[in-house]
Design a protein around this nucleic acid. Structure first.
Lengths: 144, 144
DNA sequence: GTTGACCTTGCCATCATGGGAAGGTGGATG
DNA sequence: CATCCACCTTCCCATGATGGCAAGGTCAAC
């Protein structure tokens, strides 16, 4: 099957299949004489694995690890669990950051009349900046 | 004051100050004869505003809007609030995505013994893919 | 033999940020 | 005055995962 069909069958775009091949996440596909990539059912299976891992927010390096564990029939489930738990921790850290931003903003917005007058605690916070708004070290860039 | 001092005073890196100038988020700094950028207290104040907005997760276009509102002494606080609420909604949407990923993973990890044996529900989910794991439309890419 | 759908590679863009190179400035010290 | 170090300048590159577009080759059907 050609790349387009593999893309439809796996839910991974043709573009991304080529990309995954280029970075070595998946093996190089067999080519026809004309240079077309050819895929088997097993490849589609792998691609679906990758897509599901992406849907769960795993990064490409993590997926590399997961693929290796998948293929390793003598893997220890502890190794898989470790990757998963590390990722959960990462997701939770990101959630905490977002939550802190949202909470701060929500608090400010709740105190903003939202009418036609210029007075606004949101703008004030940004310009005068109560650094101590929430337990945050002075310049800890809470970005991303 | 030079860019380095402005960076230290505002918490925005010199690199980013130049970047913000290049994209027009902040005005072009006055230059010395030698081409050095020169900053006043007011500029540092603006930079701090930008940094705080970034810390709250606002994108550059949103900060552009916020800066304009800040400078507009006849602004309507409703306009500021609208920007803030839209951003809160965005943050919450991202949190929901992350939460769904984390919940799914947590569930799988809870069912993984995490011992030396190969059997692992996490790997199984990825390879066999119970698409119906959590209310998620068939191929709704839950990406970012 | 033409057409249309598909494939190939390659480059560009995203978004905010950092790194580094090559070269000019400025002030302090020998 | 020469030297040195810290600073400044611009320019290019990289990130991560993804999409878009363009120019050109392939294939199958009609």
């Amino acid at each position: 099957m050609n790349i387009g069909e593999a893309a439809r069958a796996s839910g991974v775009s043709a573009k991304m299949i080529r990309y995954y091949e280029s970075i070595g996440l998946i093996g190089s596909a067999v080519r026809t004489q004309a240079g077309y990539r050819v895929y088997e059912e097993a490849d589609v299976h792998t691609l679906r694995f990758v897509r599901r891992a992406r849907d769960l927010g795993f990064s490409v390096p993590q997926i590399e690890t997961l693929l290796a564990l998948w293929r390793d029939r003598s893997r220890a489930s502890a190794d898989v669990k470790q990757v998963a738990l590390a990722h959960i921790a990462e997701l939770e850290a990101r959630m905490r950051q977002l939550k802190q931003m949202a909470d701060t903003l929500r608090h400010l917005a709740d105190n903003c009349c939202g009418d036609g007058r210029p007075h606004c605690p949101i703008i004030e916070e940004l310009s005068e900046g109560a650094e101590a708004a929430s337990s945050r070290s002075p310049h800890a860039s809470a970005r991303r």
